[in-house]
Write a protein that binds this DNA or RNA. Structure first.
Lengths: 249, 249
DNA sequence: CTCCTTCACTTGTCATGACATGTTACGTTG
DNA sequence: CAACGTAACATGTCATGACAAGTGAAGGAG
């Protein structure tokens, strides 16, 4: 860790987020291996020259994200990753992953404003001319790209989302907690397809590799369609897991 | 909130957990209503006679639990409660298709009796030596093969099923209507794969075509695992649809 | 009247210090 | 040798204090 890790140069992001991301990077790149002990709080205090409260906030975030776990009196350890998603409940990808014990981060590929058109318009119940936001994100797990998410939202919401920390926060949680938009049902369609060249390049697989393609239309609790997504998951690295019940009707 | 809320009498649980639970109770019983502002941190400090760090730890827990959300510079607010139940429909393939007006039938490829072994045994909660029935069926939609279903059932049930008209009747409906076995949950795992030669020949696609591979473990209403299946769907001809609801944290 | 500054209030970040509690290893004591 | 006690070290809890940053309303300047 070099010697001092100069963090105190005035910076736009809080200290604890910087430390958190540095530690996250070290976990993901294997500097700290699963089930190994992390440096203790006092060691991190000395290494980063910060107070204990700052170190604890960084570690707490990582713990809640599932990357590490603590044992009272012993120390802090790196978690093992698990990669599957349970959608018997409607969850965002990151939301599900963090609950399962690991966290992903997203790389925003592009944000555009488009007209709703004939495909997205009817899904979101907008007219063809009305503006929407197209958000393309690459989602990573263990430094590996695992899916490309293409989200279509009404422009009003898309503009707000553009200012958020989409790299680490789940869209669903932003919509619910920050914007007060309660999410209700979602309709899913799942199919298998082959990666074309563009997708292959993004997902770092070969063209012709198997992909899971998921179309998801999410509604608010009052039934308004809010988010229409196309998700392309790497078939070799991901399993969609869910638990459902037999319906009455 | 009475006046002092005597918390400081020595107690087994930490202060912040007590405050958290008191606040949680007030949110749940309607003392603090959804979208209303909570008392500010300084008010809670005075009310509970604790330090700010303690109040913030309680509020942070509630926020992460989704009960409240904070707005920097404004205050802390109660979240809207989220929808409860979630039910994705559990249907057999033919059951779903016939409801949509398609003509389906199944061709039994093979029925064998095997030992449960290490893969199927744990799923059906049988010992490795116990006998199971392996049923392979090709499923057709409008005379096109659309999937290969490999089902594993306890031999007692498999023997009965072998006598049924599996070409035209859905297994799930036989189990429920004829055998009185109520079906409850199912766990699914969905992934994308490429067709190998054997699968390609059966499904009349080319080797390397995209397939949807679904692992499904179906339980009876009392939780007994009943049917473990591997389903291989042609990616070009099938979409898996479902409708789910957002769950409670 | 409109625009802007100021100020009070909110949550966010960070430091320092203290004591509690759980774990482990290394002693000493029987 | 076995059992116990203690010290070192880990994380957990809590207090006090300070400043940063976002919000909104009141009040002054144009």
């Amino acid at each position: 860790m070099s010697q001092t890790d100069n963090i105190h140069a005035l910076s736009p992001t809080p200290l604890y987020t910087q430390i958190r991301e540095i530690l996250r990077q070290r976990i993901l790149d294997g500097t700290y291996l699963p089930h190994q002990q992390m440096p203790s709080e006092s060691e991190l205090i000395k290494a980063f020259r910060v107070s204990r409260i700052t170190v604890r906030q960084a570690l707490g975030d990582l713990q809640r994200a599932g990357l590490i776990f603590k044992i009272h009196g012993k120390g802090t350890y790196v978690s093992k990753p698990k990669a599957f998603q349970n959608i018997g409940q409607l969850q965002g990808f990151g939301e599900a992953m963090s609950r399962m014990g690991y966290e992903t981060f997203s790389q925003v590929v592009s944000i555009k404003t488009l007209a709703a058109g004939k495909t997205v318009g009817p899904k979101l119940k907008l007219k063809e001319r009305e503006p929407i936001t197209e958000l393309r994100r690459l989602r990573y797990l263990n430094r590996e790209p695992i899916s490309l998410d293409v989200s279509y939202l009404p422009k009003t919401i898309g503009d707000r989302l553009a200012k958020e920390d989409l790299a680490h926060r789940d869209i669903f949680l932003i919509l619910e907690n920050d914007y007060g938009l309660g999410l209700g049902q979602a309709e899913l369609q799942i199919e298998a397809m082959l990666a074309d060249e563009a997708l292959a390049r993004l997902l770092k697989v070969e063209a012709g590799a198997p992909l899971l393609r998921i179309e998801r239309l999410t509604f608010t609790t009052d039934g308004t369609p809010l988010d229409y997504e196309h998700l392309y998951y790497r078939g070799d690295a991901f399993q969609y897991r869910l638990r459902i019940e037999r319906g009455q009707i």
